[in-house]
Design a protein around this nucleic acid. Structure first.
Lengths: 137, 137
DNA sequence: CGGGCTGAGTTCGAAAGCTGAACTCAGATG
DNA sequence: CATCTGAGTTCAGCTTTCGAACTCAGCCCG
């Protein structure tokens, strides 16, 4: 966990990733969406690329010079449960005057999606970890 | 998500919570386990208590004066999926020479537990969010 | 009684990080 | 040629963090 937080635990990192998940890929757009200062954003993107979470690739819009965009790598996409869990906690425990700002549903069936604890035998545990057993090392 | 990160997104917060989840409740023990500077730890604990994630309560060991310990509130316990998701990502994507440092299993059946995306209709989605649909408010 | 120990802080100066605003640079546009 | 834009970089000021030293209350020991 500590190692993971080294990569994505810095200010802005997870907000940047949220935007990329939502399809915002270009520097200026990420900057506008998150409000992160440009200097910080530059460094965060570098870190995330170096960690293999994002991939920087050139793109070219008709009649402009080449720019970069940032896309999720497979490893980056696997951070989805982290984002979902964070969102879900906020939705539950912070007061939203007009409902949660983003709803996430299963594209297949339309039902809301949540991050659940589930064991490999298929049991779904409750969110509080009461049924968990931790075995160090 | 941004609001949630305001509370638990600062350096050390999640590591502190991990320790409390593991049953480490006293200031000095949390400090030793996380390595956070004491001054910072004091402030983090204050923040977490103010946010209703932890509860500070007095305790007294035989023959010592009263001290405090920090316990999870129900809201705090619901952060378990966040911790699990972070741990799981690290286990998968960072190289562990001798296996992951902590294994978490279902107390009922002994199978490893993971944070999975699951819709309210009961479907389990893959971790990459490919089957997700986001609907902004 | 006096000195030392412990848990939980607080205080300090130095180092690192964040912020907002200004500056750069390359290529496209007019 | 002057201007615009996206993506940075630089800079000065501020905040946060770091690690080490200091405090303080009550207990224990001799």
């Amino acid at each position: 966990m500590a190692q993971t937080l080294e990569i994505i635990g810095e200010r802005w990192s997870l907000l940047v990733l949220r935007e990329v998940f939502l399809g915002v890929r270009r520097f200026a757009a990420i900057q506008a969406a998150t409000g992160a200062p440009r200097a910080v954003l530059t460094r965060r993107l570098e870190t995330l690329v170096a960690a293999g979470v994002l991939q920087r690739r050139a793109y070219r819009e008709a009649g402009t010079r080449a720019r970069h965009e940032y896309r999720l790598t497979p490893a980056g996409r696997e951070l989805q449960p982290v984002l979902t869990a964070l969102m879900q906690w906020g939705d539950r425990h912070l007061a939203w005057p007009e409902g949660p700002p983003l709803r996430v549903t299963h594209a297949g069936c339309g039902a809301p999606v949540r991050a659940a604890l589930r064991c490999d035998a298929g049991h779904v545990l409750d969110d509080t970890g009461r049924e968990l057993q931790a075995i160090p090392r």
